[in-house]
């Protein structure tokens, strides 16, 4: 065949040939990405330990008062805030609230998404149309404005926030679960199980659900990350629970109680960095799971 004639290639082949022409070693980048993932896991465990055992790391109880508006010093590494609380201690204790909101929200939304997606994909027909129609309606609701309205009407508490975020973040999980369920229900072992007379409940729990875990895990982690961001945004807007100081609430107070005007960077930068790093670590774990799923799928295709 003449040189220069365009040969139709699959997307994977194109990627390989582009890498070849640009003299890129994809394996090297994959290795770097793997290290990146490991970094994510390390960061996540760091924040998890902070959240589980804050008293080991915080120099003072978060409510103890000192002189207000102190700059960083040996006694207070990140200074003090307007009412004299040690900012480092607040930061350490804040990890617990932020992560709790993230994980509790992800638990609620993953459960709802799993139930709706599984029933929709397994039963198909009218049930599928009804459930997916409902999912589409939830999908187009603008979340943050709705949460602001609900938050303004209801008593602002962390549980309201978790419930509202959880009830409004399941739709993408439901869609992914549904498409995977549609695929699995056509597998021979599901057909055999139906043929042998196993109940739909047994098939869904025992045959389909275990094969959905690798799809659910990344979605769970990414929902956790996005719930943490939503919590921080809402708290910053003053719709959070001020009695439970999360990183978002810290930012909100830094904004409303003079942290920004006085240019007290040690008050507003650390919670912002913590939110960014924690969300990034969780997202990286999520992407890691997704990557593993992709690898497994390719492996199966190759066979």
């Amino acid at each position: 065949m003449k040189k220069g004639i365009c040969i139709q290639k699959s997307p994977g082949q194109w990627k390989d040939s582009i890498a070849h022409y640009l003299n890129l070693d994809i394996r090297k980048y994959k290795k770097t990405f793997k290290k990146f993932n490991r970094g994510g896991l390390f960061l996540f465990f760091f924040f998890l330990i902070l959240a589980l055992f804050p008293s080991l790391f915080a120099p003072y109880p978060p409510t103890e008062r000192f002189v207000s508006y102190e700059p960083p010093s040996a006694a207070h590494l990140l200074g003090t805030n307007d009412i004299g609380n040690d900012i480092l201690s607040e930061l350490v204790y804040g990890a617990r609230i932020s992560m709790m909101v993230g994980f509790a929200t992800a638990c609620i939304s993953t459960f709802i998404g799993l139930m709706i997606g599984l029933c929709s994909g397994y039963f198909r027909g009218t049930i599928d149309e009804l459930l997916m129609g409902f999912t589409d309606v939830v999908l187009i609701i603008p979340k943050i404005p709705l949460i602001i309205i609900i938050g303004a009407f209801l008593h602002p508490s962390i549980w309201t926030l978790i419930l509202v975020l959880g009830l409004l973040s399941w739709e993408s999980i439901a869609r992914v679960v549904r498409s995977k369920t549609l695929q699995i229900r056509e597998a021979g072992y599901v057909k055999s199980a139906r043929c042998m007379g196993f109940s739909s409940f047994h098939i869904m729990v025992s045959d389909i659900f275990p094969n959905l875990i690798h799809v659910l895990m990344p979605k769970f982690m990414l929902t956790t990350a996005s719930a943490m961001i939503s919590e921080a945004s809402l708290s910053f807007l003053g719709l959070g629970d001020t009695s439970m100081k999360s990183w978002g609430i810290m930012l909100s107070f830094a904004f409303s109680r003079g942290g920004f005007i006085r240019d007290m960077w040690w008050w507003y930068i650390p919670p912002g960095v913590c939110i960014a790093l924690c969300v990034m670590s969780i997202a990286m774990i999520g992407f890691g799971f997704e990557g593993r799923d992709e690898k497994e799928r390719r492996g199966m295709d190759a066979e």
């Binding site: 597998a187 021979g188 072992y189 057909k191 055999s192 043929c195 042998m196 007379g197 025992s206 045959d207 275990p210 094969n211």
Partner: peptide, 22 residues
């Protein structure tokens, strides 16, 4: 239920006949 026991089906792809996670 009795029909389900009496009439069975065996599929083409043996690798797909058993749940890979069990």
């Amino acid at each position: 239920t009795a029909f389900r026991r009496r009439v069975q089906m065996m599929f083409q792809d043996p690798t797909d006949s058993f749940n890979p996670r069990k």
